[in-house]
Amino acid sequence: MRTYAGLPENDYPFHDRDALVTHCGRICMHRKKINISTVLAGQKLGIKEVDDGIWLVSFMHYDLGYIDLEQRTLQTIDNPFRHEVVIHVLGTLCYLCLRYGQ
């Protein structure tokens, strides 16, 4: 039987503090609950104050967005996980498209 170790423990030495995402996808900062994502439940995020009341939120080495404590929301930045645009080259086959025709 194979066992999986999961993700390594995240460390954020250049951030002001760490925050653990709850099972319902939130972090708590200054007695305020901020929705992040249930996908990150149980993971530690790095949080760094970049301006008065504005915090940068990072997961591993990806910056996810900014939290404004007054609005209690995460404003995401460009998707760091997005794939680059793939350009179709004439003369190549796209097997996923064959079921729909050319």
Rank of each mutant, 00 (worst) to 15 (best):
F81W: 12
P8E: 10
K33F: 03
L20D: 04
M1R: 09
D51F: 06
H23Q: 14
C28G: 08
Y66M: 06
D68I: 05
R26N: 15
Y12C: 04
I54S: 02
G91K: 13
D52S: 10
F14E: 09
L74P: 05
A19K: 05
D51S: 09
Y4P: 04
Y12F: 15
D11N: 10
C97H: 12
Y4I: 00
D78H: 09
P8W: 09
Q102Y: 12
R2V: 10
A5M: 13
K44T: 04
L96M: 06
K33I: 05
K48V: 08
K48R: 12
H30F: 14
Q71G: 03
K33G: 01
C28I: 09
G25Q: 08
T38M: 05
D16A: 08
C24S: 15
T3F: 12
C94Q: 11
H15D: 06
G42D: 03
H30Q: 15
F14T: 02
T73V: 00
G46C: 05
G65I: 01
R99Y: 06
G53W: 10
N79P: 00
C28L: 11
V86C: 12
R26M: 15
D16V: 00
L69E: 03
Y12P: 01
Q102G: 06
T38D: 00
M29W: 13
T38F: 02
R72Q: 12
V50I: 04
D78N: 12
F59P: 00
I27L: 05
V39I: 14
H61G: 04
I87K: 11
T92R: 11
D11Y: 09
T73F: 07
R31P: 00
E70R: 15
S58E: 07
A41P: 00
E9N: 08
Y12N: 03
V50T: 06
L64C: 02
H23V: 02
F81G: 03
E9F: 12
F14H: 06
G6N: 13
T73L: 11
G6P: 02
R72H: 07
N10I: 02
L56N: 00
D68P: 02
D11G: 07
K32S: 07
D16H: 11
Y62M: 08
L90D: 14
I47E: 08
C24H: 10
V21T: 03
F81H: 07
G65W: 01
N35E: 10
M1Y: 11
Q102T: 08
W55S: 01
D18G: 15
D52W: 08
S58V: 06
L69M: 14
Y95I: 06
R72E: 03
T22H: 03
G25P: 04
